[in-house]
């Protein structure tokens, strides 16, 4: 075996070097190919297929007819239903991202200033709800926000009027913030954990007040965490449809709800239009992320 010569390869002959390289290449190919073939087949190919489908005509009984068209994209950009869905999805994702930053940052700051033992416990507690089924956690909010639910029982018992929150957009936003909060806390915590808090004292010694020190020192230095968290929160929120259906009562059409309808519910389904929708969504996400990264990194310098 060529490998046996590896330790005694002091003679450095050309042949052993070549054999070694060939051996290395075989190992890499052996390790890589099963996984890569799987991903090319079941990940890359499906994505290419929806790109192709988005330029085809819808079939009579669902599926597609192999006739090229750009009609789906024309429909997307001219119909108020679809434009509105994009707008609403982006709006609710931006709101969710901003709210989770505002709620997560102080929380991460508190955790980052604890002793190592407490840090571990507090972080574990942040992660714990994340390990329970997402659907189940969303459903739990239905029990709480119900007209006769826990929240209204508490409100009424202290003499306040009950609120109809379930099946409103407020409930959707609440459910989204709830589901995404851990994904914002963890990256912000990670960057705060690396932050040297003595810098804040330094800033204060140089005459900065607390807000200025936060604004000019702590926030810029922990921005990578905020950015990572924003990406983690923003992407899944743009495509969500479960929360808006269960908590929002499916009153507003988001991209996710339309995709579900176009692919699964409508009779016959409209796969080409749905594919075009998914493709445009990917393009928007890529654009947003690129712009976001560029904007914030320039700010940092």
């Amino acid at each position: 075996m060529a490998t046996k010569t590896l330790p005694s390869a002091d003679q450095h002959s050309v042949e052993t070097a070549a054999a070694l390289r060939r051996d290395q290449r075989n190992q890499v190919v052996g390790l890589l190919s099963p996984g890569l073939i799987w991903l090319l087949l079941f990940f890359v190919a499906p994505l290419l297929i929806i790109v192709v489908y988005s330029f085809l005509v819808r079939g009579q009984f669902g599926g597609v007819s192999w006739l090229p068209t750009i009609g789906n994209y024309v429909d997307l950009f001219t119909s108020p239903v679809y434009l509105n869905a994009y707008w609403r999805s982006i709006l609710v994702s931006v709101l969710t991202t901003v709210l989770t930053i505002l709620l997560a940052y102080p929380m991460a700051l508190f955790i980052a200033q604890r002793s190592p033992r407490w840090k571990l416990v507090l972080l574990f507690l942040v992660l714990l709800p994340f390990w329970t089924n997402f659907l189940v956690r969303t459903y739990a909010w239905m029990i709480i926000l119900n007209d006769n639910g826990v929240l209204n029982t508490i409100l009424r018992s202290i003499g306040l009027p009950g609120q109809s929150i379930l099946y409103t957009e407020t409930a959707t936003l609440l459910g989204l913030v709830y589901g995404e909060l851990p994904f914002m806390v963890l990256p912000i915590y990670t960057s705060l954990d690396r932050f040297d808090f003595r810098l804040m004292e330094g800033a204060a010694d140089l005459g900065a007040n607390r807000w200025q020190a936060f604004r000019r020192v702590m926030l810029p230095m922990t921005m990578p965490g905020v950015i990572a968290g924003s990406v983690l929160v923003f992407i899944p929120t743009v495509g969500q449809f479960v929360v808006s259906e269960l908590l929002g009562g499916a009153k507003v059409d988001y991209i996710g709800n339309l995709l579900q309808r176009l692919f699964l519910r409508s009779n016959p389904p409209n796969w080409p239009l749905g594919s075009a929708m998914a493709v445009v969504m990917m393009l928007i996400l890529t654009l947003v992320i690129v712009l976001y990264f560029r904007g914030t990194t320039e700010d940092d310098r």
Partner: peptide
């Protein structure tokens, strides 16, 4: 990891 789940879902269904 970063692709929205629903995009992978419709892509796999089509595939």
């Amino acid at each position: 990891i970063v692709i929205p789940e629903i995009v992978l879902a419709v892509a796999l269904l089509s595939f």
